[in-house]
Design a protein around this nucleic acid. Structure first.
Length: 881
RNA sequence: GCCGAAGUGGCGGAAUUGGCAGACGCGCUAGACUCAGAAUCUAGUGCCCGUAAUGGGCGUGGAGGUUCAAAUCCUCUCUUCGGCACCA
């Protein structure tokens, strides 16, 4: 019995595609190119989740349709295979993480092939492959070899860094140190998230509210020597180039917020009693520099705050405040992230005993330290304007500091009041009001010559004035921080760097990068993966022959940190273009031919970090001439999350996880693919429903029966499939379907495309004669969605070759057009009747037809028509009194 | 608190240059086939009123507004989800 049996038919075609290398893509595109990429998965031990095939099916449909439309398609898949779970598994079992990783990859590959995706498997890669690590390390060396020329906004080779004469005069050591300070990869003593319970250092993303994401153990901050990447140098370009990419606005906004560009002014406050106070000079050591986005509120500054870690704190603290300041600083230093967020509501701080002079009015204001000011943003010091800043207001209230209003809401002010709401006496009343804060823009008061200016005008004037007087200048700041790039883990790429040792085996501070010819540097063999409870990296216990190479008689120690998981995912899209190149990262001609990526689909969880890091690396490679486009991902789409049947997030603990293997076993891959596309818009969050899978499976079965004679003993065509010509009605349905499906694929609206094919099927199953032409074209339209079924039916319809490169069906507008239309007739906006008119009827004819409709005549009897609206092809509306 | 996305039948969702709300599917109801079930097929299915219809009313989170006409545009508001969270 030739029933529709995916369990037989799907493996058959998967084998066919594999053996014929149906989806191998050309090295260089022929004609129009189409590079469509999925965010590659981390091969976890749990296997594929139903969320994965959602995006993968969407891109697969786009690719399969594009091939049929004659474009050269590049559609690769790989594995983001470094990561903590494999390392934890290794710690538990003593088995090398590579073994676990390879098993997981094999399982993922099996599942992906089971779903019939048209990947070019010859390009498969994993970030853990030695020949991939090779080029990850090579890119790191590029970063290490690059400095950022602020003036030209461009990364350049380090040997082109201009060395100031004063540095050059000090000798080679000073020059090297100077270069090291400017590299995009540099070392820094940075606080890391050390988790004593897990015995490891964690990435920021792995710390949630001061506790480890896994296990919920406390995490403390402690300083360690780290490798940093100078992503902040690229902040401006990373922000600006977002304009040119076709991304969801939400993702762009997220990235902009993360980069956090703000403009304002840096202002120098002179320390009272400093030598230069009388002379009002700009002696560096005698000023506190602050950053503000509201220089127009300078007259309202009633105190200053330095971050506890600010270098001037020691000097500013008077003898009688020594004890208190020291205690506060110690406490602040020991604070974990959890404490910081917990204490966010209560402001705390201590007075240093010193005062500074406000350059705009020479007033003396007290200098405090408080941990609500961060050393890492701006200058690490602020002027505090409690009347117009929420945080300063809370602090001033707590410590009884003066509050002085200098802005009042303008005539068309939006209410930007906090705490006590708008002033009781109306919008004009703000001056000296001590129990509210106004953070909006408005009109200046209590500001000397600047009174009456709007906030915008004031900002411009005061910035110019500060510059003229030498008290400050305009400034731009970014929230973005440099990227902490090293991890104290085993299962990651080793850094291709050596630390020079002296005779006593102490580091001299000199770094020696590996030469390109010495790459890749593989991970050493480790006997023991167990954490040793110290924050030094696991690679510190590597065998000496790995750890201490001797080159030209000098002993070195290898860098024992490893790279974060992001490193591999930062550039995999480039390697897919030329995966087996051993001479270079990528062949420039191939790169130019395929880049940028036309469509990149993945989860919204990567909206910031992965996409920002990858853009950063790409821009460095662009500056250094290795890639030809300033941005890697032209169009980005986030697939929505699939929730469990109970409407909650899928999780093992909720017991609502849907396993793709089980769905395929019961309904087949085509049904899973089709269901995931039919659930709703690609980008929407939507709940799973097994009945829905059964529903689309029923549709595929109906397609099967429309074409196959299920009652016959062998696989033959349904006798209703004939070589007759299409009737006019049949042609209209066919061409409407082609049109809708074609347009919907371009818009990535797969759910409605499937609905149109269902309508087609509902129509044609009722036809006694189903012309072969219509059946063949439907099979082609359906093939991107349900490729196995489509190939099987295509073969049955008499074709010996795969349909993967058959020309996409064309539609004819003339055949779609109806001769006669039914249009509604409204009276006062309510539909009262419907009339049939010829498709080309003009306004007068339609109106006449409407007037002559018996029901309309009846309803309009005795009524006076004040107005008639006729929209040809749409409706008629009679407006009566 | 700030930013972003979204609220349409019992459910997933269609329809936004303003022009018949509910395409398509699930579910449900009735019927056919069957010993019975599964599967399949046929008809119906937004809510309320009505014996009935080619009948009447209501209806896209809520309240107003613009318009001949609003799910769609404007104002206010509520709810849900996601992100950020002392960034001066």
């Amino acid at each position: 019995m030739p029933r529709y049996n995916p369990a037989v038919l799907e493996p058959k075609w998967q084998t066919y595609w594999d053996q014929h290398k149906t989806f191998a893509s050309p090295q260089m595109p022929v004609g129009a190119k189409c590079y469509v990429l999925d965010m590659f998965p981390y091969p976890s031990g749990d296997g594929l989740h139903v969320g994965h095939p959602e995006g993968y099916t969407a891109t697969d449909i786009v690719c399969r349709a594009a091939r049929m439309q004659g474009r050269s398609v590049l559609h690769p898949m790989g594995f983001d295979a470094f990561g903590l779970p494999a390392e934890e598994h290794a710690i538990k079992t003593g088995q090398h993480p590579r073994i676990q990783t390879e098993q997981n990859i094999a399982n993922f590959r099996r599942q992906l092939k089971m779903l019939g995706f048209s990947y070019d498997w010859d390009r498969e890669l994993a970030t853990t492959d030695l020949n991939y690590i090779h080029w990850t390390q090579w890119i790191f060396l590029q970063l290490y070899d690059t400095w950022f020329d602020q003036e030209h906004q461009r990364g350049k080779p380090i040997d082109q860094l201009p060395i100031p004469e004063s540095i050059a005069a000090e000798g080679d050591k000073a020059v090297i140190a100077y270069q090291d300070q400017h590299r995009l990869a540099y070392q820094s003593e940075a606080p890391v998230n050390w988790c004593p319970a897990l015995g490891t250092v964690l990435a920021n993303e792995e710390v949630i509210n001061g506790k480890s994401e896994r296990g919920g153990h406390p995490v403390v901050r402690r300083p360690l020597r780290q490798w940093m990447l100078r992503i902040t140098a690229y902040a401006e370009r990373l922000e600006k180039d977002l304009e040119g990419v076709d991304w969801p606005t939400g993702v762009k906004t997220l990235q902009r917020n993360w980069i956090g560009r703000s403009t304002g002014a840096e202002v120098n406050f002179i320390i009272r009693g400093a030598k230069s106070e009388e002379r009002r000079t700009k002696d560096e050591g005698d000023v506190i520099r602050v950053y503000t986005t509201r220089p127009d509120t300078l007259f309202g500054a009633t105190y200053m705050v330095l971050a506890p870690e600010h270098p001037l704190v020691e000097r500013l603290t008077t003898a009688e405040n020594q004890q208190e300041v020291a205690t506060y600083r110690d406490k602040a230093a020991a604070k974990s992230d959890l404490d910081r967020t917990d204490l966010a509501k209560d402001k705390s701080g201590v007075f240093t005993g010193s005062y500074a002079i406000n350059p705009v009015n020479d007033e003396q204001i007290p200098i405090w330290i408080a941990d609500y000011v961060l050393i890492s943003y701006g200058t690490g010091a602020i002027m505090a304007v409690p009347a117009h800043d929420q945080r300063d207001f809370e602090f001033a209230q707590q410590y009884g500091i003066d509050i002085k209003s200098v802005v009042e809401p303008g005539p068309n002010a939006t209410s930007d009041y906090s705490l006590k709401g708008p002033p009781k006496d109306g919008p004009g009343k703000t001056a000296d009001d001590k129990d509210q804060v106004f953070t909006g823009e408005g009109i200046a008061i209590n500001s000397g010559d600047f009174n009456g200016l709007t906030t915008e005008q004031f900002k411009q004037k005061i910035t110019a004035w500060l510059k003229a007087q030498g008290h400050g200048h305009q400034a731009v700041n970014y929230k973005l921080r440099d990227w902490l790039f090293s991890r104290q883990r085993f299962w990651g790429e080793p850094f291709p760097l050596l630390h020079e040792l002296d005779d006593q085996r102490k580091p001299t501070g000199n770094i020696r990068p590996l030469e390109a010819k010495d790459l890749p540097l593989n991970l050493p063999h480790l006997e023991d993966f167990k954490p040793h409870g110290r924050p030094e990296p696991p690679l510190d216990s590597a065998p000496d022959e790995w750890l201490y190479p001797v080159i030209d008689g000098t002993t070195y120690k290898r860098e024992t940190n490893t790279m974060p998981q992001w490193a591999g995912s930062c550039w995999y899209y480039l390697r897919f273009l030329d995966p087996s190149n051993e001479q270079a990262l990528i062949d420039p001609e191939i790169e130019q031919a395929w880049m940028p990526i036309d469509l990149y689909v993945g989860g919204a969880e990567h909206a910031v970090l992965h996409l920002l890091y990858a853009r950063f690396w790409h821009k460095v490679l662009f500056d250094r001439g290795w890639v030809s486009t300033p941005e890697p991902f032209h169009k980005l789409v986030n697939q929505g999350m699939i929730l469990g049947e109970d409407g909650g997030k899928m999780s093992k603990s909720r017991g609502n996880v849907v396993n793709p293997d089980e769905v395929v076993a019961e309904y087949g891959a085509d049904s899973l693919r089709l269901y995931e596309m039919f659930m709703g818009p690609l980008e929407a969050t939507k709940p799973w429903n097994m009945d829905g899978v059964n529903g689309v499976h029923g549709f595929l079965h109906r397609v099967w029966r429309m074409i196959v004679d299920e009652k016959a003993d062998e696989l033959i065509l349904n006798s209703a499939v004939t070589d007759e010509r299409l009737t006019q009605a049949q042609a209209r349905v066919l061409h409407k379907t082609i049109q809708a499906v074609t347009q919907d694929i371009a818009k990535l609206e797969f759910n409605t495309a499937i609905a149109r094919m269902m309508e087609f099927t509902n129509f044609f199953t009722k036809q006694d004669s189903r012309p072969r032409e219509a059946m063949e074209k439907l099979v082609l339209l359906l093939s991107p969605y349900a490729p196995h079924l489509a190939e099987e039916l295509w073969q049955l319809l008499g074709h010996s070759d795969t349909l993967a490169y058959e020309p996409w069906p064309e539609y004819d507008d003339a055949l779609i057009a109806e001769d006669e239309l039914e249009i509604p007739v409204q009276i006062k906006g309510k539909v009262r009747s419907k009339i049939r008119v010829p498709a080309g009827a003009d306004q007068g004819a339609i109106k006449a037809a409407a007037r002559n409709d018996p029901r309309i005549i009846e309803l309009l009897a005795g009524k006076q028509i004040v107005k008639t609206i006729v929209v040809p092809g749409r409706l008629v509306n009679f407006v009566t009194r």
